[in-house]
Every structure is written in C-alpha cells, then in structure tokens.
Amino acid sequence: MLQTRFTETFGIRHPIVQGGMQWVGRAELVSAVAEAGALGFLTALTQPTPEDLVKEIQRTRELTDQPFGVNLTILPAITPPPYAEYRQAICESGVKIVETAGSNPIDHLPDFHGAGIKVIHKATSVRHAVKAATLGVDAVSIDGFECAGHPGEDDVPNLVLVPAAADAIDIPLIASGGIGDARGLVAALALGADAVNMGTRFLCTAESPIHQKIKEQIVAHSERDTDLIFRTLHNTARVAKNEVSQEVIRIEREGGSFEDVLPLVSGKRGRLVYEEGDPDRGIWSAGLVQGLIHDIPTCQELVDRMVGEAAQIIESRLTGFVAQPALD
C-alpha cells in the first residue's frame, strides 16, 4: 500500500484517480474503480438533468459502499447547463468529493465546502494551479501536455509541469497525462505528486461503458496515434487519430473557422463512437498513453497491478541505485 497526502486527505486506499470523462463516467466504471480502492468520478454533465445525476449517484451507491466523487466541468456556453442545479443535486446527494474543471470554480466553492465536500480542481498550468489553491480548493489535478482532452495552450509535459506545480502549491497534487502503469505512478510520486489521474487507461478496462471495439482500438494504437485539433482556435484538444480528426486539421490548416468543423466534432458523433464501436464515427479523446496500453483488465486487476508493481519498483529497483558506503 502506498500512503500519501492524497490518500490521507480523501480517505482513499490507493493514490489513483479516475477523473471525469464525458459519456464514460457512469456508475458501472466508477463503482468498479471505488471497489478497487481508487477514486472514481461520475461525470455530472453526462447526465441529461440534475435529477438524472441524483439517480446515477444512487445507482453507484447500490454497486459500492466505497467513496467516489462527481466531476462538474464548467465551460462557457451561449446556453450553459443549469450549473447551480447540478451543484445543488451534488450537495444534497451526500457525495463528499467533487472534481471541478474548465472555468474558475469560485462560484461553486462556498456551497460545496458548506456541504462538507472536498474539491479537487483540474488545471493545465502552474499559474492556474496556484490560483485554484488561493481560492481554497483541497487539491489540484494538473494536466500535462500528454493528456487526452484539453491540455491547455502551454505545451508543457509532466516531467516539468508536475515538479513546477509541486514547488508552487502546498496542497495535495495529482498528476494527470501519460500515466498508465506502475512506472508512471512511481515517476509522478518522485516528481512531487501525491497521486495520479488516469483517463485513457480506465477507458480501456472491462467495466468501462464503451464498445469493445474502441477498447481494442486503444490497445492497437501507439503513442503516435493522437491528433491535436483546435490549435488555430486556441482551444487545443488531444483526440484519437482517425479520419475525422485528420479532416478537422486539414480544414484548420486552410484557415477554416469553428463553424466549418462543428459538424465533424459534435458531441453526439463522439458519443456514437463509444456506443456503436466505429472509431471513425466522430471525435473521441485519447492520450499519448495509448502506447503503454496492451490489455483490457478489470479495474481491480489494473489497480492491484499498479500498486503492487510500484512497491516493487520503489523497494527493489530504486533502492538498488543507491550505493552503499564501503566498509573500512
């Protein structure tokens, strides 16, 4: 067992997190992660209404008695979701851990903390991590350039980003991006993180509620099979490389606007990828860590393997590098 500030602060057995993923953070996956001793997050906005979120929280509780959380991603929109109602649903549900992402969480913190909820905020830069810490969040999850989804615009990988963030804040830090096995876990801890967050790796597990063909596609992919889209729009997203992502890049290269690519990148098409199993049906998120994913384990098998192998690396391989002083 690995004990860190994260495990102590959040009451989780292992320093491993399954962050919120649109269309994926559902009861089946989150409960399996929780049962394995890690921290899983339901994705609030995957549920059509706050009332549906309450039902999904209850469904998760029927599958596990271990702690889990809810992700609330706050994004600018012409017609934004009813964030206050989702927030109220979370508070009234008795969930004690929330992951916020996207925009500044300041408007949500008083209610969450008032309900005794600990908040982890996801950031993509040191400056945003520092800002979140000054607002009073309980931990920061920092996304390196390797991550799936939105890695920010600074293009800083975790080898630099994690220790820089660890130097700048004094609350638990979770490393996210490019981590899929025990080596990544140990490396993140060595860099100053207190836990790791994994999206793509948990996407490719037995309990993940996506089509088997997409899981097999992740296994088949290498670390070179992602694309960065929306670069020209300053809203970079890392997605699995496919026919659609290549077309989006072509349109951007030729000076196209967001309206020109909108039909290609709709969330509805991305959801159909997961439901129908056609990897070229739309845009779907995947990180560089695809190159390290070679199987489709259960969440229990994955977590047990990571924690066990991490302990072996720390106890055997790393200590072996320390030269013993010569005896006189």
Rank of each mutant, 00 (worst) to 15 (best):
W23F: 14
W23A: 01
W23Y: 14
R26F: 12
A27Q: 12
A27H: 12
L29V: 13
S31Y: 10
V33R: 09
E35M: 05
G37C: 10
A38I: 06
L39P: 05
L39C: 14
L39R: 07
F41Y: 13
L42P: 15
T43C: 14
L45W: 10
L45R: 11
L45E: 05
T46Q: 03
T46M: 09
Q47A: 11
P48N: 15
P48Q: 09
P50D: 04
P50L: 10
L53M: 13
V54Y: 07
K55F: 10
R59E: 15
R59V: 04
T60A: 12
T60P: 12
R61K: 13
E62H: 12
L63E: 15
D65M: 11
Q66N: 06
F68K: 03
G69F: 09
G69H: 08
V70G: 02
V70T: 10
V70K: 06
L72R: 00
T73S: 00
L75M: 13
P76Y: 12
A77C: 09
I78Y: 11
T79E: 14
P80C: 13
P81C: 06
Y83Q: 08
E85W: 11
Y86Q: 07
R87L: 15
R87M: 09
Q88H: 14
A89D: 11
A89L: 10
A89H: 03
I90A: 02
C91M: 13
S93G: 12
G94P: 09
T100Y: 09
A101H: 03
S103Q: 02
P105G: 06
P105H: 09
I106H: 07
H108M: 10
H108W: 05
L109G: 08
P110E: 13
D111F: 02
F112H: 01
H113F: 13
H113N: 07
A115P: 14
A115T: 15
K118L: 15
V119P: 01
V119I: 15
V119C: 06
I120P: 01
H121W: 05
H121Y: 05
K122Q: 00
K122R: 14
V126F: 03
V126T: 00
V126D: 03
K131R: 15
K131P: 00
K131V: 00
K131Y: 06
A132H: 12
G136F: 04
G136W: 08
V137P: 02
V137E: 06
V137N: 07
A139D: 11
A139P: 14
I142E: 02
D143W: 00
F145Y: 13
C147M: 12
C147R: 05
C147F: 02
G149L: 08
G149K: 03
H150R: 11
P151R: 00
P151V: 04
G152C: 02
E153G: 00
E153K: 02
D155I: 01
D155F: 01
V156W: 01
P157E: 07
P157Y: 05
P157L: 04
L159P: 03
V160L: 02
L161A: 02
L161K: 03
P163L: 04
A164E: 14
A164D: 05
A165K: 00
A166G: 06
A166I: 08
A166H: 10
D167C: 05
D167Y: 03
A168M: 02
A168F: 01
I169V: 13
I169Q: 04
